[in-house]
């Protein structure tokens, strides 16, 4: 599903060399490592938001190394949410569906169902700038899932939620992943949250070596 072959990437003075990993089945996969090791860079390279210097990235068996982000159809949850603050929660959630020109009825149903699952029903018409950190995170998660992608990348999911909400959300998300046969790559510092569901765990060390654990 997701395959990195000897990927080199550079962001300013930061340099990652010869990253190779292979995720070959659906389900939850974790990427762990110290802060600053380059986890986010790897995920963004997969999503097409970070240019690759050399090496290849394959998705669903096809080489997407030089494809633009839109062409990769990955639902991406950035660590800092990056919501569109000039839009409402609803607009944020339906953004990817509208970009794909879904019929309005289908968009509405999808947004309503996600809002229900994520507990955002009462916030739909609010502008995102007025939300709390946890609410923003949930909106960003919903936005990443809205267009029903089969591959999802999450950067530090559920961190900004309170313990109770987090437990409920991880529970719901695990079910969602299983039912929809999603392939998920999640960057996390808390692998224990996903012990029950994680299929594989990849670790990146301070030298930038990625290994399956």
């Amino acid at each position: 599903m997701i395959e990195l072959n000897k990927v080199n990437l550079r962001r300013g003075s930061f340099h990652l060399k010869n990253i190779s990993m292979e995720i070959d089945r659906s389900g939850m996969h974790l990427l762990t490592g110290e802060t600053g090791a380059g986890k986010t860079s790897i995920v963004e390279a997969i999503c097409g938001l970070q240019a690759v210097e050399s090496g290849t990235i394959d998705l669903r068996g096809a080489d997407v190394t030089h494809k633009d982000p839109a062409g990769r159809s990955i639902g991406y949850l950035p660590q800092d949410a990056v919501l569109f603050d000039h839009l409402t929660v609803r607009d944020n959630l339906q953004f990817s569906c509208q970009a794909r020109r879904w019929k309005s009825l289908r968009v509405r149903e999808r947004v309503d169902s996600l809002a229900h699952s994520l507990g955002l029903v009462n916030l739909l018409e609010r502008r995102t700038s007025s939300l709390s950190g946890g609410q923003k995170h949930l909106v960003a998660l919903g936005r990443a899932l809205a267009f029903e992608p089969d591959i999802v990348c999450l950067d530090e999911p559920f961190v900004t939620l309170d313990a109770q909400t987090r437990e409920a959300m991880i529970d719901w998300f695990s079910t969602y992943v299983r039912e929809n046969e999603l392939t998920v790559l999640a960057v996390t510092h808390q692998p224990q949250w996903f012990n029950a569901t994680a299929k594989t765990r990849w670790n990146i060390d301070g030298q930038g070596n990625v290994a399956k654990k």
């Binding site: 982000p69 839109a70 990955i74």
Partner: peptide, 27 residues
């Protein structure tokens, strides 16, 4: 540029991101 990039990852073209994200925020 992050909002534009995220918009692109959500399925927008460069032009679409410019119209839907950049211009409204630059109003």
């Amino acid at each position: 540029t992050r909002q534009e990039r995220i918009a692109q990852s959500l399925g927008c073209s460069r032009f679409g991101a410019f119209c839907k994200i950049t211009l409204p925020q630059a109003r």
